[in-house]
Nucleic acid binder design. Sequence first.
DNA 1: CTCTCGATTAGCT
DNA 2: GCTAATCGAGAGA
Length: 223
Amino acid sequence: MGKKIGLAAYLIDDPVQGALFFLGKKLAVKDSKGNIAGIIVETEAYGGAEDKACHGYGKRLTPRNKIIFQQGGITYVYFCYGMHHLLNFVLGPEGVPMAVLIRGVIITEGKELVKQRRKGNPEHHWADGPGKVTKAMGITLADNGISLIGDRIWVEESGLEVPDSEIERTPRIGVDYAEEWAKKPLRFVWKQAMQRIMPSLINASSSSLNKDRVKTACSPTTH
DNA sequence: CTCTCGATTAGCT
DNA sequence: GCTAATCGAGAGA
C-alpha cells in the first residue's frame, strides 16, 4: 500500500485546484472481501463563491448536505436519482461548502471483486461514471462523512503524472438547473488515461471513452 | 456506435 | 408533489 495523502491536501480553499490535484491519483477502498483501488480519471469541482450547483449553495443546512460544510478530508456520499450513490471528497475549512465529485476511475486492483459487482459490463465501463464508481468499489451511504485519512477509503500519493495537454475541461454534467453555473467548465477528464493505464483495453473499447457530452467551443480555424 | 426513455426514492418546498 | 451531480436496456445505424 502506498502512502496516504494527508489532511493538508484537502484543506485547500479552491475546488478547481482540488479537482485537478486528484486526477491521476490512486483511490483505494478496504473491503471485507479485499482491497479495491483505481486511478481517478474524471472529476468535477463544486462550491466556492456562490456555486448554484453545489449542495451547499446559499448556506442552507439540511440533513443531507451538512457533511459538505465540515472541514475537508472526509467523504460526502449521497443518494441520487433514486438509485445511485455519488462519492465526493470534502475540501476546505469548516463552514465552507466545497467538494470534488469523483466521476471516473480505472480499476487497477481488486479486479475479481469488481468484475462480480459490475457483472455484465465490459471492463472499460466498470467505473466510468459517478454511480458506477461507487457500485464498483462498494461505497454506500454508510461511508458518508468518514475520514479520507482512515483505513476504509483513502487516496495515495503514488499517483500518475497527468500532463496538462491530456486534461479536457468541460461544463459539469447534469446541472442544467444551475443557471449561469451550469455552463462553467468545472469538469476535468484525463483523456488519455485509458491508453496510459490500461492500453490493452483500447482495442475493445474503441472510441467511446471520453466522448464530449457537451459541446465545446468552436474552433476559430480554417474557412 | 448513438439516442431515447424508464427506473426508483430521499430530500426538499 | 417534484426533482435529482445517473444508469442500462433496447432500438436504430
